[in-house]
Simulated assay, not measured.
Amino acid sequence: MIKFFRKIRQKLLSENNFSKYLIYAIGEIILVVIGILIALQINNWNEELKLEQKEIDIATEIYFELNENLAYVKKQKINWEKRANTAQTLSKIIISKSESLTQKQFDSTMLYILGYYKLNLIKNKFDNIVSSETFEFKKSTSLKREMLALKSLYETLESYYQSNVEVNRNTLRPYLFENYSFRNFNNIISKESKGFAVNHQNLLNDLKFDNAIQNVIGSSMPFVNYFNTTIKKMELLKVALEETYPSIKE
């Protein structure tokens, strides 16, 4: 192609036809400029495709991590809901004159209430994107806002979890340490019957024990409710990601 243009230039110069040569030179410059512009446009398209693919990859990572975290949070919600319901059942027995618990039932109930579940949310990729000041979802400007709102729910959920841990450590366990035998809990696990003779009915009639159980309920019920709020927000974000990036479901 270069040789072809060179021959044309040489022919025009040999003919001493300056006007035609000038027109040709201008045309060649225009062609070069057009070529450069086309090359730049192709390069821009390639860069845009790369950025778009990167955005899809990030959305896919967030989507799969969100799914994993959603399953985990739902499971934890069930566990903590059972614990809260167990504490509420015990509270009703405390004030009831007709219901009672055997020693084994009481020990099993207290073991279940004491054995709270740890909360370790799965959100490393989620946190990285939320904290990024440079990355944005170009296909949906609302996704980042939705993620920020969910981040706030995660933080509140973790705060409620810590509150439950503190109630157990600072209120319920110290009371049982002074007023009950932890050997009884070992008996439930090992299925033996070796322990101190501590009448659990005394605990059921003790105002301090009732207050400790009320603290457990007071910290666990809002925690369970916030699980529900968080799960709904996670499901909404999941749907938003699917609608914005349909390919991620594949």
Rank of each mutant, 00 (worst) to 15 (best):
F5W: 06
E81V: 05
E250L: 13
L241R: 01
S193D: 13
E136Q: 12
I217C: 02
E81A: 14
I58Y: 13
F209M: 03
E61F: 08
I36F: 15
L237V: 00
N170H: 02
M221F: 04
V73W: 04
I23D: 04
K233V: 01
Q88E: 11
L153D: 10
E55Q: 08
I93N: 09
Q214Y: 09
S91I: 09
L236M: 03
G195K: 06
T244R: 03
T134G: 01
N124F: 01
A71D: 03
N228P: 04
G115I: 04
I78M: 09
S131W: 05
R183M: 10
I231R: 00
W80F: 08
F64C: 01
I188C: 03
L150R: 07
K208G: 02
L176V: 07
N46K: 15
Y161Q: 11
E65G: 12
F5Y: 15
M1K: 08
S159P: 02
L153C: 11
A212K: 00
Y24G: 04
V198P: 01
S181Y: 01
A25E: 14
Y116W: 10
S19Q: 09
S19C: 05
N199D: 15
V216S: 05
Y154G: 00
S181F: 02
L241Q: 03
N186H: 15
A240L: 03
K208T: 14
N225M: 04
V130A: 14
N164Y: 02
N211D: 12
L157T: 02
I217R: 01
N79K: 11
A197H: 04
K138H: 08
Q88I: 10
R183V: 07
K82Q: 14
K191S: 06
S19A: 11
K191Q: 13
R145M: 07
I29P: 03
Y21I: 04
W80M: 07
S159Q: 05
I189L: 13
S132L: 06
E68M: 07
S142M: 11
L90E: 07
D107P: 09
I93P: 05
S220D: 05
K92D: 12
N202F: 05
I113D: 01
L37V: 14
V130Q: 07
H200C: 00
L111P: 06
A39W: 10
Q201S: 11
Y226M: 00
E61K: 10
L237Y: 02
D210Q: 11
I23A: 06
A149Q: 13
E146F: 06
L203S: 03
L148E: 15
E61I: 09
L237P: 00
N124Q: 14
K50Y: 12
E243I: 02
R169A: 14
T156F: 00
T141R: 08
N85I: 11
M110P: 00
V33P: 01
K151A: 07
K3W: 06
Y154V: 01
T109H: 06
T109M: 13
Q76S: 08
